[in-house]
Design a protein around this nucleic acid. Structure first.
Lengths: 336, 336
DNA sequence: GATGTGTATCGAAACGATTCGATTTTACAA
DNA sequence: TTGTAAAATCGAATCGTTTCGATACACATC
């Protein structure tokens, strides 16, 4: 069943059917009604391969994501799907594994599928201006840090201020009287990663309060409970008199909390903990974990909005920085 | 840059380029090398819309998923993406919201995109044999219950035995001396839902041990911590002398545990808890939650394998039932 | 009645691939 | 050389759309 069949059955030309289906050009009301009824009756769905071929553009959006199993992204993916779907577009998902070039992978898809737009989510992108430019279609970076200095007119982005957020968390712990605060993140020592941005905020807070930075208190740690657990164990075994831990993700914080509790220490009695992200599980941990909460769903929503604005012809790239929120629950306490 | 350009530059006909790229038919080694070098030099990627149009079949796989933000599915989605990607196919994801007809939604995509295959993941499907048949392309149901009796020759599936698994969990609690065991799941009273299957196993265990079933101990509850928390609160407030809780998901169990702990009761001192799924967070909860673990990643893997077997021409539908595993950690104890 | 102006519709061409029947080239025996 | 089969290659037709220039008709205007 194709457009020709529909045309024949409706007794009109194929271009008329096309105009009816695309709401383009003029069609008399009676013709429109007749065509639509035939379409409905035969349950006709236009072939998007043919359409995309002709238009040399598909309506498909691709989501390139690093860390797909990170629970913080789950709700974001859900919202991206929802918003994209709402606009009548199919969503393609491609996971970007460590070590693969995300721009190259996207380029492949773009040429193959004539994509409408791309959302990049998660991780750290080590690309030059030129590489971003060569994408040639609208795209948005969400919760991503770029390692190179790239002209902001070249891309759109949705993010939070990682330095400021980590600063806020660390400040909070300091205000509670903590001095020996450790920090766990992925690649904290590698410049321009998210881990490094958060380390910067952590350092800034220490510095402002005259607390000396001690690299022994910083642990490299993947964003998952098992790594947080191991990192916290290592930290505790160093006997540095740690009274507080700041984790760059709730998943890490949950693992770290487990390490603390299973060592016979209490939270927040002996150790205070602050996480990052604001995932639901952290709230239901016992004790409920304090955290820096990111508005993930809103960020996903705005990412899609920006993307479709660009697709609609908007030429100015936007950079939206959301405010993170320090959520105080039950995992920190005042000491001294 | 299209196949014609490549043909011209290589000094060969377009069909030769096509044969080189698809490894179909004969091409002399020298010609093949020449074409490939041009393809590489110009970074040519065949347009899949054109290819799919001609072949009236695309290589796209669709994943229709209910409950995309459920952490148990995160790893499954990741594995599905990985396996599909490994086979050189793009993956389309569509979220199936409550109340939408998943088969109809899939049909739309199938006709629009000439899909290669579909994986349905999560939830309960209320469809007849006819409806499944009309899909007309290979598909696999993963972690899904079907409400109607459908001829197993009509579909392939990957699952665990929900009745048996819940039976195992309940039996375990009973063996520890518990009598007043409550049960939390989604739609436990609606026939053929996953919640109901697990309820059946729960009931079976009770019955075998001469414990009377008490519907006051059963709570309807969505698969998320907040709902588990509320359900457990309701249960505790009934003062039924509950000593154990069995939750049909770890997310529920985590919420329930929070309700127990924040009521000043201890786990497993006062209340024993067993969850379901085997998500990482449950292990790092404190105390570590006992659970019925499902091999999600393997299930995802096998689902993709079956799907591609069907695509390759396999005509016999397969039904793989994985073994779930009772994982004893620290949230249950022997009483009396 | 000739001309002009909308309105509604038509169908051929094009998008970029695959494929199959036709054609050319090569290899080798006679 | 020639004949012939096998190997290599060619290009037209096709997939199902969109789009644009052309057409047909009704009606008003002069």
């Amino acid at each position: 069943m194709n457009i020709k069949d529909i045309a024949k059955i409706s007794g009109v030309g194929i271009s008329t059917v096309s105009r009816v289906l695309n709401n383009s050009g003029v069609v008399s009301d009676t013709t429109r009604a007749r065509v639509l009824s035939v379409v409905k009756q035969y349950n006709y769905v236009p072939n998007s391969n043919a359409r995309n071929l002709k238009k040399t553009q598909s309506n498909t959006i691709a989501l390139m994501i690093k860390g797909i199993s990170n629970p913080f992204f789950a709700n974001m993916i859900k919202e991206v799907e929802r918003q994209v779907h709402l606009r009548g577009c199919p969503l393609m998902i491609q996971q970007v594994e460590d070590g693969v070039d995300e721009i190259a992978a996207a380029m492949q898809l773009i040429r193959e599928k004539n994509l409408y737009g791309v959302i990049f989510m998660g991780g750290t992108y080590d690309h030059s201006e030129e590489e971003f430019k060569q994408l040639g279609i609208p795209f948005v970076l969400t919760t991503i840090t770029t390692m190179k200095e790239v002209d902001p007119n070249v891309f759109s982005s949705v993010s939070i201020d990682d330095v400021q957020s980590a600063y806020k968390a660390t400040n909070y712990l300091i205000s509670l009287g903590h001095r020996n605060i450790c920090f766990m993140a992925r690649y904290p020592l590698m410049e321009n990663t998210i881990g490094n941005r958060r380390l910067l905020g952590y350092k800034k807070a220490l510095e402002e309060h005259g607390i000396e930075y001690d690299s022994a208190l910083v642990e490299d740690c993947e964003y998952a409970p098992s790594f947080g657990f191991a990192a916290a164990k290592r930290l505790l075994s160093k006997n540095l008199g740690v009274t507080a831990m700041f984790a760059a993700s709730d998943a890490i914080a949950i693992g770290a909390a487990k390490a603390v509790l299973s060592s016979g220490l209490s939270i927040p009695g002996d150790i205070s903990i602050v996480g990052f992200d604001g995932i639901e599980m952290a709230e239901y941990y016992h004790p409920s974990l304090d955290t820096i909460s990111q508005p993930g769903v809103e960020m996903a929503h705005v990412s899609v909005e920006i993307l479709f604005d660009l697709i609609a012809g908007e030429t100015a790239n936007r950079h939206v920085v959301f405010e993170s929120m320090l959520v105080k629950r039950g995992s920190s306490r005042k000491i001294n």
